[in-house]
Every structure is written in C-alpha cells, then in structure tokens.
C-alpha cells in the first residue's frame, strides 16, 4: 500500500509533534482509553513478573526475591497438573464438538423454513437464554439437578440416578456442556444467519433450473457460501481451547466433583485469591495464556495454509 515515494522522510518525533499540533483533540479524546489499556492490561502484563518471584504484598514487585522458574516447576510436577490439563481440554473439546456444529445445523435448518414470521419467532425465542445471567443459569442448574430437581426427574426416566446429579463425577462435564449449549445455541447461530442472508439468491435459481433439489442446493451452494465464516469461528474457538472462564465452573462445582470439574482457571482463582499464593497462581495463569497464544497462532497458520480464510 505504502509503495508510493515519500517526498520528505521526516523523523517520527517531528511528525508526531506536528500531528499533535494539527489535531490536538484526537490526542485528548484517546487519552482515557489508552490510560485504561495501560493501567488494566499492560501493567498487569508487566505484573506477571511476580511469577518468577516469591511475591509478597508488603515488599511489592521491586523488593520481592527472584526465584526463577520455581513456581512453573512446582506446577508442572505438582499433583494437579495432569488433572487440570485433562479437564480443561476435555470440557473445551466437548464444547467444541457439540457447541460448534449445532448452531450451524440449527441455522441451516431454520434457513430452510419458508415462513418469515416463524423464523423470526424461533430466532427470538432461542436468543433468550443468552440474556439470562450466568449466575441465574448456574443457580437454576444447581436447583434443577438436586435430588428433587426437575432435570434429575426427567433424566431419571432415562436411567440416571435420582439424586443430586452435580455430585457425580461422570456427569459434571456433560451437564456443564449441555448448559452452555442451551444458553448459546441460538445466539451463536446469529453470525451464520448473517452469512446466509448474504448468499446470492440467483445461485439457487440457477441450481433449481439445473434440477438440484433442496439437499443438493444446501450442500453445493449454502454450505460453501458460509464456509469462510465457519473457518474463522473455528480458528477462534481452537485458539481458546485452553481458556475457560472460571466463573461458571466456580458457580457449579463442589468438593465431590473436583476430579472432573476443576480446571486451570478455577485453580488459579483458588490458589491465588483464596490461598493467596500470588506468585504460584500467576505462574499457572501465565503458562495458560502462553499456550493459548501458541494455539491461536497455530490454528490461524493451519487455516491460512489449507483454506483462504484466516484471522490475520
């Protein structure tokens, strides 16, 4: 883009001063946002240096002793590493396998419906759970899964035990995934509806004239049209494979299901905020973040290699 010849290559500092003089308001207006990102994002990024220290609040970052990779070693060799990694991965992969294709199938199916008002009503209703707060969703889940709860009642007809389901190790992850899918199925499909609305209608006309039925139209026109959207979203999901918000699991889990419910982020919260092992928790969090970035870059590279779509 910037291939054109620059007539005068001024030093950056001079250009900046001139730019500030010409557009002082721009610099004033961006100030609050820049301050926000520096204070609440970049200072904490600097703050991860405590992962390499034995941080003590009274001493602060500057005076706490350096301990190198001690906390990283402790975590990697600690009793919980494999359990946390396994749970974080399996919940995320479960969410990916179930929660990713369902909105696509849902959007494709509803798109096949010819009635506009029916489509609108179904969309409005399925978006609804997205607007219910996490606390309420998890709270209802806790109530519904008790021994006398309605979900327990329904599932007991299918052979599940009639006692508190959230205390069973083997049910925690499926229940957690089901709850998330319930809440986000409709909402996650919005983006596909948007992509579907953009498909050129004349393609369907042509296919119809050529004798392609509904199924083949979907397979040969609709699906390829929304494929770039699918790929981009998949890349983002894979990039988040090791990040799992701790809030919902924190709301749902209990001592009896730690074996399958405890994930990296809940562990960071517990060790850091509850047990106040600041440095150790911070080291665990940092490792998690780094692996995420690597996953995202990897997923994006793969996507760029095998398809035309990529995040950057």
């Amino acid at each position: 883009m910037s291939a054109q010849v620059k007539y005068r290559k001024e030093p950056f500092r001079l250009r900046l001063v001139r730019n500030i003089r010409q557009h002082p308001w721009l610099y004033i207006m961006i100030l609050p946002a820049v301050a926000y990102f520096i204070i609440f994002h970049y200072l904490p990024m600097y703050g991860v240096v405590i992962s390499f220290q034995d941080y003590h609040p009274v001493r602060g970052i500057t005076k706490s002793p350096w301990v190198g990779l001690k906390h990283f070693n402790n975590f990697l060799n600690g009793p919980f590493f494999w359990r946390l990694l396994r749970n974080t991965l399996s919940i995320n992969i479960g969410l990916l396998l179930v929660g990713f294709p369902l909105p696509i199938i849902f959007a494709l199916m509803l798109n096949e419906s010819r009635s506009g008002p029916f489509k609108k009503v179904v969309q409005t209703i399925t978006y609804m759970p997205h607007f219910v707060s996490s606390v309420v969703v998890c709270g209802l889940m806790v109530i519904f899964c008790r021994g006398d709860g309605i979900l327990t009642f329904i599932l007991s007809k299918f052979g599940m035990p009639q006692s508190n389901l959230l205390t069973y190790k083997q049910y925690f992850q499926p229940l957690y995934i089901a709850m998330n899918v319930w809440q986000e199925l409709g909402w996650d499909s919005i983006i596909y509806f948007a992509a579907l609305a953009g498909v050129d209608a004349s393609l369907y006309e042509a296919a119809y004239v050529d004798g392609a039925g509904r199924w083949r139209q979907m397979w040969h026109i609709t699906l390829p049209s929304i494929l770039p959207t699918i790929v981009i979203l998949l890349v983002m999901r894979v990039g988040n494979l090791l990040s799992l918000g701790w809030d919902r699991i924190f709301l749902l889990y209990n001592d009896m299901v730690m074996e399958t419910a405890d994930v990296i982020s809940t562990y960071v919260y517990r060790t850091g905020m509850v047990q106040m092992q600041y440095s150790f928790a911070s080291a665990v969090g940092l490792m998690n973040s780094l692996v995420n970035v690597v996953l995202l870059i990897g997923a994006n590279a793969l996507s760029r290699k095998f398809t035309d779509s990529s995040l950057w």
Binding site: I39, L43, G47, I50, I61, G272, M273, S282
Partner: peptide, 16 residues
C-alpha cells in the same frame, strides 16, 4: 489485549 492478558492475580495487585 484481546488475546493475551496478565491474568487475575496481577490485576488484583494493580487494583490494590
């Protein structure tokens, strides 16, 4: 900042 964060513990230290 959308892809990398310092995490909750350093944020807690900043807030304090």
């Amino acid at each position: 900042t959308m892809f990398f964060s310092g995490g909750i513990i350093p944020l807690f230290i900043i807030v304090r």
